[in-house]
Design a protein around this nucleic acid. Structure first.
Lengths: 236, 236
DNA sequence: TAGATTGTTAATCGATTAACAATC
DNA sequence: TAGATTGTTAATCGATTAACAATC
């Protein structure tokens, strides 16, 4: 993962496991690449390799969506692209607002994966009034005071938070009050939201720390465990 | 989590589960905040609330590290900060290189969580020669041709890839050849790496797609399931 | 038909959680 | 001692995977 979430129960009504949902975008990306190369069909083995997963897992994942393959043949690429897109809700338009237009917000605004695949950046918002009007990724930055009106006018249900940590909770509260029910949080804070609001968190330093853990273990391979050490700080 | 990974077995030598490792940075962040407020001790209940997890899970997680709490009292904040930092390998210095200094690379370079917590940006690299020498976050951008020398001279073991998708695999190969054994990948591609190299992936559009899935389910709550529909595209 | 590949079963494994004995 | 809270057990739940019958 990337990392934190706060959801309803792990499986939903028709019962697609959360772990499967998280992999559907991977499959979709691999399928889109095949589609662009005009590959008509693909086997679970090939597609799994392209997506970087085990083929049994892929077939199990697809079995939650329905029986979209043909035994002895494989999967029709275009058909599967459509089915997965529909399952993920990407056949409809999702207006999003990005709050906090620093380097990260600008990177997100420019990110190609946003504009394609059903997501439309409805507005870029920042608390810095001197940024207002500046064009980022072809869109004018607007002042945070316009948040409520923009969310209402564009029926925005997804907000992306790229503000400093200190501003994230207040921005969240305003987004939620204005009607946003899904939040992608890049600020390094735990957000509190009411029931029914989904938060996903992307945390750069957490990913790095997880790598450091494994890196340390590699370096220590076969060496003496440094764990019996007298701690540098003792409990009170 | 963010999302993809490619690891050795889920638990390691002394057997800390991967899910626990992924939460240690969350605990560390909450503890650091308490430390800054000079809070001396904290109970599992309080700390769990601050980190956004279940307190039983937190106690179980800590039990893998050792018995660092005091029954009836709680955990000594400073002591626990030290133990978790040590477990994560943050008591040593980790030089990292960031490759691809667009908006995202610049955001990463400026990210406070990098500089603190044991990580040190050894260099910023970009393929665009016209960027060379420009200061980003106080560091000069250097040309990608210097990659091998920089990795060797600084004993860099962690690389961060913020290039376009098309460049990511080649950059990965060069990093790995130069000696890097952990990669944090922001490019939307599956990277192939030899055994012994860890890759973690952060994928903005995947996170958004997962949100869209849940958002769609919310919108459809109590409505007719649209699944029996005649598909718009039929299999070949 | 023979070969290929799906969809599903069942075993296994890892993660979560409530509950509570241990103990400060 | 009485109250509080940890550390651990055991039950449960969800995810992964190999294997193979079904079937194109």
């Amino acid at each position: 993962m990337a990392t934190g979430r706060s959801h309803r129960p792990a499986t939903r009504s028709r019962g697609i496991p959360e772990a499967t949902v998280a992999r559907l975008p991977l499959y979709l990306r691999a399928l889109t690449a095949l589609s662009e190369r005009s590959v008509p069909t693909v086997s679970s083995e090939e597609l799994a390799a392209a997506a970087g997963v085990n083929s049994a897992k892929l077939r199990k994942d697809f079995s939650y969506l329905g029986s979209y393959g043909t035994r002895g043949v494989g999967y029709d690429v275009e058909y599967l692209v459509y089915q997965i897109s529909r399952e993920l809700g990407l056949t409809q338009d999702w207006p999003v607002v990005i709050v906090g237009i620093g380097n990260l917000g600008a990177a997100l605004a420019n990110y190609g994966g946003f504009a394609s695949r059903g997501f439309r950046v409805a507005a870029l918002l920042d608390a810095d009034a001197s940024l207002a009007g500046r064009l980022v990724a072809g869109l004018p930055v607007r002042h945070i005071d316009e948040l409520e009106a923009i969310v209402a006018d564009n029926q925005v249900s997804i907000g992306v938070i790229a503000t400093p940590a200190g501003a994230a909770q207040e921005v969240t509260d305003r987004l939620v009050n204005a009607g946003v029910t899904s939040i992608l949080n890049f600020a390094p804070t735990v957000l509190s939201v009411p029931d029914g609001v989904d938060v996903r968190k992307v945390d750069l330093s957490i990913e790095l720390q997880i790598l450091a853990f494994h890196e340390q273990r590699k370096a220590g391979e076969g060496r003496q465990e440094p764990d019996g050490d007298v701690p540098a700080v003792m409990p009170a």
